[in-house]
Structure formats: C-alpha cells, structure tokens
Design a protein around this nucleic acid. Structure first.
Lengths: 216, 216
DNA sequence: GTCTATATGTGGATAGAC
DNA sequence: GTCTATCCACATATAGAC
C-alpha cells in the first residue's frame, strides 16, 4: 500500500508547490498595486483564479501570506546580489553594483515596492531581516572599502551614508516610479531612461568618493 | 439680532478652525504611524480626544480627510522651499538646497512619510499635484542650471535625474528612518547624523556635477 | 485538496437626541 | 456643534460537504 501511495504523494506535493507559487506571485503583484492593507485575500484569490478558502488553506492568515511573500522576495534578492571583490577596485565594483541594483529593481519592480511598503510600515519581519543579514553584510563592505581607502584608491567616506544614498537612488526608480514618470514626462520607462540613471548615479558616486575615473 | 449673532458666529468659526487643525494634525501623525489604509477614523478620533462622529462631521469621508491632510502638507512645503537663485551660483544653491531638504524632512517627518505613502499608493491627489506644480517648478530649475552650465560653472548633467536623486537621498532619512537607524545602529537620529548626511550628499552632488568645490 | 456557505468581527458613515 | 446608538458593507477566517 505504501508503494501505491508514493506517486499520489508526489502529485499532491506537486500541486501544493504549484499553487503556493501561484499564490505568492499573485500576492506580490496585488500587494504592490493595492498596498499591503488595502489588499484583500479575495482580490488575490480572484486574480489567481482560486476560491478564497483555497488561499487560506495554504496560508492560514493574511499576515502569514505577507511574510511568505517577503521571505521569497528576500531570498531571491540575496541570490542575485554579487558581493564586492577587493581585487577589482572601487571603480569597477561601484559601477557594477549600481548597474545591478538598478537592473534588479527594474526586473522586480513589484518585489521592490512590497519591500519598501513593508519597510515604511515597519513590519517586524523586514526590520529583523535588516538587523540580521544586512548589517553583517555591510560590515564586510565596510572592510573592503577601508582597504581601498588605505591603498589610496578612494577618499575616506562614510560607508553607512554611502550605502544609504546608493539604496535610495537606485530604489527610487522602482518604488516611486509614478513620480519618476511624471518628472521624465513618460508613460513608461525605457532602456535609455535606466541607462541615463545608471550613468548619472555612477558618475556622482565615483566623483563623490574621489575615485579616479579615467574614462571621463 | 444680526448684531448679536456675529460674536456667536465668530465663536463657532473659532471652534471649527481649532477642531479642524486638531483633527488634521492628529491624522497626519496616525496616518504616518499606521499607514494610510490601516488607519481608522476611530483611531484618529481617540487620539484627538473626540468622538468618531465629530471627525466625520468635519470631514465627511476618510478620503476627504486624507486629501485635506495632504493639501495641508503640500501647502506648508511650498512655503518653506526656497527657489534657486541664479546669481548665487551652483555651489551655494545646491548646498543650501540639500541642507534645507534634509532639515525639512527631519522637522516634518510625519508629513514626509504620509506624502511618500500616498505617492507609492499612487493617490490621484498627489499625482495631480506633482503634474501641475512640480513640473513647472522643475522647468525653472532646469533653466537656471542651463545658465550655470553655459557659464562653465558646472558640467552638463540631466536636471531630471539630478532632482530624482536629490529627492531620493534627502527623503530617505525621513521616509525609511527605520532602515537608516538600523544601518547607523542608533535608537534615534541626532544632529550629527543629519550633518554627516548633508556633508556626504553635498560632496557627492557637487563633485558629480563638476562644481569646483574650493573648500575641499 | 477543493470549494460553498457562513460565522464573526470591524470599519465607514449617519440618524437623531441633546 | 456634540455625541450615542446603529446601519450596512465588507474582510478575515473557518466549518463542513464533496
């Protein structure tokens, strides 16, 4: 009997994984569009093409669902972040970092917005994440930057304020895209808009950090 | 009789103005703390020490109330913004602009957060404001910057992306203060933190815009 | 695992007495 | 202008049949 049960369990597990992914992806979209509190489980269910009770079957409460969405976002982000490489030097690393951050917030605009909303709403889940993972990561970057400073490759700047500015500038194109569109007077942002942003931010950061930019 | 009525009307008008201010100030605080959708008129009433029906007497709907709050925020902001002064040159103007923006977002943290929430939620009221007032103001700054570029006082940069970055960097200390506190590892932000922010941002912007900063 | 029907709670808004 | 009591809509969450 147990031999017969296994394929059934595999099927169930497959259905489960499939539905969970569907619900999480849909939720991220609806949360980003409607805001966290305005979003109802009914909206998510409708947009996912499922009955509401089904959503609650997989995620008991709306809070659980939001946290699952946030966890997924953070996990995917961690995977796509490339760390600073000391050997590469400040110019290459900062340029790459800015480019990757802009690309990422563009590719995952909804994820970025949900994260920003949760952060502004001071959701414990997000604050804990920042405290645990983020800060240790920042320590590493700080050490790397110190090496570059000691080598005379860049000016001694506050790593904390540098990263606060980097995140603010790169995230704003996703989180406040409505504002950006109005300022640029465009219906939708295109490749060249993001290229302009990258170029402007990179130029400012390199110059502000006293990095010799021989390409200018 | 009309002579006797006037003082009564004045009293009523006074009560009205006083209550409206109380409700608006309380709302701004609660909206900033709880988020726009999570905030209930009951919370606002409780915190203002009024019965809920009283709040609805002055502002028929929650939407009306939010818009009144936003309108008040924007009016106060407009008054405290000093325009670019062509004669002053880029260094003085950009330095002052950054300093004023940081001071303002610090002094009115709640207002700043409510505005950011409404912007991220793409509230029509805020988008319309940006389209009408903001964009014309940007045109003026753009013309000023062009003058400076022509005079060789700064490099030709994209005014749009410059302002997008300026707003992002200066607002982030108010809007995402929870994140900033974690990065700086402080319970509360103090004078020197804001001074560091001003210094870092100013340095970066001036260098990035190719403004000769003889003080460095 | 799926889904209908429903219990339970809460919020926005107002009627109507004072 | 103030405030109690209440209506109605809607959201979360679950029970229970399939």
């Amino acid at each position: 009997m147990s031999e017969e049960k296994r394929p059934k369990d595999q099927l169930k597990a497959h259905i489960r994984a499939q539905n969970q992914t569907l619900i999480l992806e849909t939720s991220e979209r609806v949360f980003a569009r409607q805001g966290l509190a305005k979003t109802t489980t009914q909206m998510i269910a409708d947009e996912a093409g499922l009955p509401k009770a089904n959503v609650h079957y997989y995620y008991r409460s709306k809070k659980d669902l939001l946290e699952a969405v946030l966890e997924r976002i953070l996990r995917l982000w961690l995977d796509s972040v490339s760390e600073f490489d000391v050997e590469g030097g400040p110019k290459e690393n900062l340029t790459r970092y800015i480019s990757e951050k802009i690309d990422q917030s563009r590719a995952n605009k909804n994820a970025s917005k949900v994260f920003a909303m949760a952060l502004m709403g001071e959701e414990h889940f997000v604050l804990d994440y920042l405290r645990n993972l983020f800060v240790t990561e920042l320590e590493r970057e700080k050490a790397t930057i110190q090496v570059w400073v000691d080598k005379g490759l860049m000016a001694p700047v506050s790593t904390e304020h540098l990263f606060i500015s980097l995140w603010a500038m790169t995230q704003t194109y996703a989180d406040f895209d409505a504002q950006v569109k109005i300022i640029l007077q465009k219906e939708t942002l295109e490749d060249n808009d993001y290229d302009d942003a990258k170029q402007f931010i990179t130029r400012m950061v390199l110059a502000g950090c006293g990095v010799v930019d021989d390409s200018l």
